[in-house]
Nucleic acid binder design. Sequence first.
DNA 1: CCGTGAGTTCAACTATTGTCGAACTGTGCC
DNA 2: GGCACAGTTCGACAATAGTTGAACTCACGG
Lengths: 105, 105
Amino acid sequence: MPAAIDLPHPDRDDITLEGVLFALSDSERLAIARELRVGPLDAVNCVPWDPSMPKSTKSHLMKVLREGGVIRSVPNGRNRTLSLRRDDLDARFPGLLDAILDADH
Amino acid sequence: MPAAIDLPHPDRDDITLEGVLFALSDSERLAIARELRVGPLDAVNCVPWDPSMPKSTKSHLMKVLREGGVIRSVPNGRNRTLSLRRDDLDARFPGLLDAILDADH
DNA sequence: CCGTGAGTTCAACTATTGTCGAACTGTGCC
DNA sequence: GGCACAGTTCGACAATAGTTGAACTCACGG
């Protein structure tokens, strides 16, 4: 499967609190979410903190974030543009995303 | 080991965001935290939603919440009084606890 | 002081997650 | 068209997390 396929994202109402918390309960996934805070980013330009990580592992990280409803991952040429689902998350769980991303690290 | 032993709790500064998110990323643990919202509760009176759950399993749930820094668990006679570590969590991660516990379920 | 009650620990097991190589597929550039 | 690039999927394995019964410990009430 290519980089340019349309992957399934949960609808806003299907995003669960548990799913979001789980997705962000891992340091690396949390770091990705924090990177996306300033705006969408191509996956290629993201994740600069470990260039040696195999692509299948990166793909898996993105998958958990995507399936948890935390990020949106859309094809963009041969890349993928990742973005936070801020509107959906803010609507569904007000204050949650900022509380998490603002948190002391 | 009895019900009345002093179990280790992480210091405020040792509580990690990831640990808190992980502890609360499970429906049952989240439900316990929500029950404790109104105030401390003896473990016996808590967890009314599944009386058939083995005690070792309940003990494990409490352990994860305690080690994650979400709850405090102090001996109280032959029970254990559970309470949210609201002061510590609010100090360390402002807004996080309310955002989570207020969230739509 | 003995029995009961509440909760912890241990050990074994199951189940869920994470890691990574290999094979594969659209996309863009020549 | 051909080729390299970015990511996905699959499968196998490692690692972590959840479940539970049994043995144990302390506190309370007779």
